[in-house]
Amino acid sequence: MSTAALEVINLKKTYQDKVGDSVVEAVKGINFSIKAGTIFGLLGPNGAGKTTIIAAITTLEKPTSGDVLVFGNSVTEKPLLTKRQVGVVHQEVINTGYFSVAEILDFQSGYYGLFKNKERCEYLMHKLSLHEHREKKTRQLSGGMKRRLMIAKALVHSPKLLLLDEPTAGVDVGLRESLWNFVQELKKDGLSILLTTHYLEEAEQLCDQVAIIHKGQLLFNGHSTDVISQYTLKKFTIFLKNGEKKEFEEATKMGLNEVLVKHQIQLSEIQDIKIEEGKLEKAFAKMVAQ
């Protein structure tokens, strides 16, 4: 019995090109899994295939081949069961024109067979600062509020796996920070989270594991520190007492003592030291460029 929250097994998705007759391979046989209770970052440039993978998990798109298991159950064989366990925040904002925030959450609860779900909806509206806007229709909400509404919708049925497809795209810094804090809280509550984002620095801080995909292929799957050490260097800037400044770029695993020995610098000569760790963003750019 699998304990993974999500297993993507040799997933392939091809489309017929809308313009020509050629076949586009959006996802080319990708494998990865997410351990229950962790945050997993799915990273890649635009058009890498991230949204297609999320569409396959949520059954919006049927895989060309391969399978997706949610807590051990295939999304193609038992879609009604797996859908109950998954909440999804789509990349594009939904603009339901007719209904208020409270009505939308009420309907969303009903779609999951929950009739008296007021307590949960109230909790989410308070938690996501939507309560004072509960009677507003979506067109009256700001972009940030719409994003929060989408997150509330994804959580009304208390899913075990949350899919966040670029939830902070176009969101201001303050709101982004509060959303990430909320994501951390959800993780503490035991929720498993799959996250796609362009903010790699935040992915580095938040995610227990990251996968980097490019042109439908998996380039890396593991901890962000591994990819950083593999693809970036640590920058040492040493200010000497004689006013001289020395800069060295060394492997991430290398410590200060080793650097000083390597470059024959005595501790007594040093006035100040600045160390810059490699960033996921740099590693990502390098990997994709290769």
């Binding site: 603009n95 779609y111 919708k153």
Partner: peptide
């Protein structure tokens, strides 16, 4: 059609609705 424009038809697809 309005749900296709607004995108909330996707909600029906991702929810466990026969």
């Amino acid at each position: 059609v309005t749900s296709k424009f607004s995108g909330d038809l996707e909600d029906l697809r991702v929810a466990p609705i026969p």
